[in-house]
């Protein structure tokens, strides 16, 4: 038998704490695969966020630190600046990165910090019980937008990659989706490019991963992926938004 796909060694044996059907685990596995394939696992420090993936360090087998809510990019800056030989990743959700941590994110990007940001967007605060996030779609019902997000009161969904793509600091900015095998393969391709940006010391990279939250969306896992395709991707279209010279 020839092995076509195999869970990488960088993914630990510890079962995840995520709800059934939550795509966080897919994002973890992609990162683990790439760290092993690119022989980065032992050089890597992952800065984990506050949110559902707060225990991420149990699931990916690298040196790890746990940041305060939103501060991952600042912490990663401190690690990378003092240890440029390390491979530094932040793993952040949309509440963490796009709300409380937006300043740290934008400035790390603007400075061109040599870090990779994996930004998982499921349109709500999952761990705290499904409150409205900056990425919540218009009309979407959450526990703090019980009548649906309404632009006049709550503004519009924040598109972080589009924002970052117009500043000079970042080298590679992309958005992928975890809704289907095809898009998951594409997500891995994008993240690989992002990782190479840091390996080649080119600068800042960020890949947003459109994800789901079956529990708080009150859907089955299949329905939640279907919602990504029908409702989320039209607002958050996938693709590469900034690819500077030298990105391979």
């Amino acid at each position: 038998m020839k092995t076509l796909y195999k869970v990488p060694g960088a993914v630990t044996d510890c079962p995840t704490t995520y709800c059934p059907g939550c795509p966080h685990g897919v994002a973890h596995r992609i990162i683990g695969e790439l760290l092993d394939e690119m022989q980065l696992t032992r050089k890597t420090v992952i800065v984990w966020p506050v949110g559902c993936s707060v225990f991420g360090y149990y699931f990916i087998d690298t040196d790890a630190v746990e940041a305060a809510h939103g501060r991952a990019c600042a912490m990663a800056t401190g690690i990378k600046r003092t240890h440029p030989e390390s491979f530094v990743i932040t793993y952040q959700g949309d509440g963490d990165l796009a709300s409380i941590g937006i300043a740290e994110t934008i400035h790390a990007a603007a400075r061109g910090e040599r870090i990779c940001v994996i930004y998982v967007n499921n349109g709500n605060y999952g761990m705290t019980g499904g409150q409205m996030a900056p990425t919540t779609l218009l009309g979407q019902v959450t526990t703090t937008s019980p009548y649906g997000r309404e632009a006049h009161a709550n503004g519009f969904p924040l598109k972080v990659p589009e924002m970052l793509a117009v500043i000079d600091g970042p080298v590679y900015i992309a958005r992928a989706s975890l809704d289907s095998p095809k898009h998951i393969i594409q997500a891995k391709k994008f993240i690989k490019k992002a990782f190479k940006v840091q390996v080649n010391d080119l600068g800042f990279s960020l890949v947003e991963l459109i994800s789901s939250c079956p529990t708080n969306w009150k859907m089955t896992p299949e329905e939640s992926l279907e919602r990504i395709r029908k409702q989320v991707l039209p607002v958050f279209p996938i693709g590469e938004l900034k690819v500077d010279e030298g990105v391979a």
Partner: peptide, 22 residues
């Protein structure tokens, strides 16, 4: 057909390996 879709979509690394006969 060992397409690997199950491996790719699995959020829990429960689909540990996908193989095809040589």
């Amino acid at each position: 057909i060992s397409c690997g879709f199950c491996y790719l979509i699995c959020p829990d690394a429960a689909i540990v390996e996908v193989r095809r006969p040589v």
